[in-house]
Nucleic acid binder design. Structure first.
Length: 110
DNA sequence: AAGATGACGCCCG
DNA sequence: CCGGGCGCCATCT
């Protein structure tokens, strides 16, 4: 059951040294079109690893000092940048999306 | 209730 | 690469 809470929980799953995007987090949390909701949650909950959430393509969407702060914190976690953007192919975190499919119990038993 | 706004995403020229 | 415009969703005035 989707709710802002799941969004926050999803963001908390991002491990240190990894990053994700608004869209990806939204989808992982069950909001295919909720990129903006993710942004809202980040604003309201300052107790999350907000620095690990970036815009599409790994771009920092913040402005001014906050952008610098985010860059600094990410670099401190070992995240590398490709110019203005984060090197996604190296740090993008892939969420596991729980689908309605039942998990295969013991694949290929025998 | 209608319009404007915002840590967004994506398509077009 | 950059700017502009439209679509999404929830909240605020």
């Amino acid at each position: 059951m989707p709710s802002p809470t799941s969004i926050a929980a999803t963001i908390r799953r991002i491990p240190r040294g990894k990053v994700s995007t608004y869209g990806a987090v939204a989808r992982a949390a069950g909001y295919p079109r909720g990129a903006r909701l993710v942004a809202r949650v980040l604003r309201g909950a300052f107790d999350l690893p907000w620095q690990r959430v970036l815009g599409a393509g790994g771009e920092i969407k913040l402005q001014g000092e906050f952008a610098a702060e985010q860059r600094f914190r990410l670099r401190s976690e070992g995240v590398t940048f490709c110019g203005r953007r984060v090197d996604m192919k190296q740090h993008e975190f892939h969420f596991s999306k729980p689908k309605k499919k039942k998990s295969r119990r013991r694949t290929g038993r025998r």
